[in-house]
Design a protein around this nucleic acid. Structure first.
Lengths: 206, 206
DNA sequence: TGAATGACAGATTTCAATTTCTGTCATTCA
DNA sequence: TGAATGACAGAAATTGAAATCTGTCATTCA
């Protein structure tokens, strides 16, 4: 029996408020122990009410994960449209992604581990799979736009921008895939990151 | 209680024979259910005898994993010393590593999953960690030698061959790290592989 | 009348009792 | 005499009974 938490101020019950509470509960209890009843209790309502807004616990987890992933994608969007040469934006974008992931992993290891664990199990027809795939498509889409603008500027070259974006993204997996999070605190990781980005940028030179 | 297996012909009990039997037992029962008693039974000896040759079950697992990893490294060694331009050897080596991993994952999923599971948990001071690290060092060492020879030939360029090797190796993680094994049967994976290797080779051009 | 409730059935998780395994070592065997 | 054995203690895994959770829905509430 978890300790009672303060019910949130009793505004109307909205999906957004439920997601807020869900994230808080996940942070507190972790992915295995967080229950729908816990979420309802945090909101001061019965768990039946939660089911009025989300069809299942799985749907709730999908929504809260999507929210979390979208936050990262939105932060990076500003780099895509920045006013700088494409190679510089490409470097900044990759560094930004790495930094965002590292920050999340470092600042709130509980929640990061929680989301990683949620995402990890995307075996069968899990609905999370499509949420994650959409997120990955968002990110490679941003990369594609940077590369395309570089080709227009004449500062980058690639036969197929989307394929190049995918290649760059998977080449840097070590610096953004949560499975490698334990390595992110290694002292030499910055040097490895720089060496890899240098190599990739050389490969994309006109 | 697992079905009795044929005791292997009763030659002298050597570490090599024990490792052979261990691999067989792992293949049959998987990493969770394989016991030292099972290995001893497969050899027709008591489990006490196994402990004469390996100090612990962990040591036995390390040795059998090392054997498995070394087999891959040895196959690739011939590509390193082949008589071909370095860029070609680099491509062949990466393709060889990918093919070897894919073959192992496809031909004997049980055993592959078994070793992946064994390796996966290299959290704390597991002895497996150093076995795996040595393996990774072997592989990046081979890559380093290819790159160095390419620099001597004038067919490749890199400020720091060892750093470049490390960058190439981690850039291709998606095609050799067991955590990505489920993706290896995706139809577009070959195209992704080729696109990435092309990009990396462009980055290493003189 | 539309949102919220809480009792309920079936699914899942937890926990402690029991079984099985690891690693040791005094003894046996050849 | 050196290798092999098997009984044993403590550690780890398994199991199934009990507790908890998910998802539904007839009923209450405002």
């Amino acid at each position: 029996m978890p300790p009672q938490s303060e019910p949130v101020a009793s505004t109307a019950l909205t999906p957004e408020r439920i997601l807020e509470a869900t994230e808080e509960v996940l942070r507190r209890y972790g992915p295995n122990k967080a229950t729908v009843v816990d979420v309802a209790r945090a909101l001061g309502v019965s768990h039946g009410s939660v089911y009025r807004h989300f069809a299942s616990k799985a749907a709730l987890r999908e929504a809260v994960t999507k929210r979390w992933l979208d936050r990262t994608a939105n932060q990076l969007e500003s780099i895509v449209t920045a006013d700088a040469p494409a190679p510089e934006r490409l470097r900044d974008w990759l560094a930004g992604l790495f930094a965002a992931k590292r920050r999340k992993a470092g600042d709130d290891p509980e929640l990061f581990a929680t989301y990683s664990a949620l995402i990890e199990r995307l075996g069968g027809g899990s609905g999370l799979e499509s949420v994650v795939n959409r997120h990955l498509a968002d990110l490679t889409g941003q990369l594609t736009r940077i590369i395309e603008s570089g080709i227009r500027q004449g500062t980058l070259a690639a036969p197929d921008p989307a394929a190049a974006a995918e290649a760059v993204f998977s080449a840097t997996a070590r610096f953004h895939d949560p499975v490698y999070a334990p390595e992110w605190s290694h002292p030499d990781i910055e040097a490895s990151f720089t060496a890899l980005v240098d190599l990739l940028l050389r490969g994309l030179r006109p």
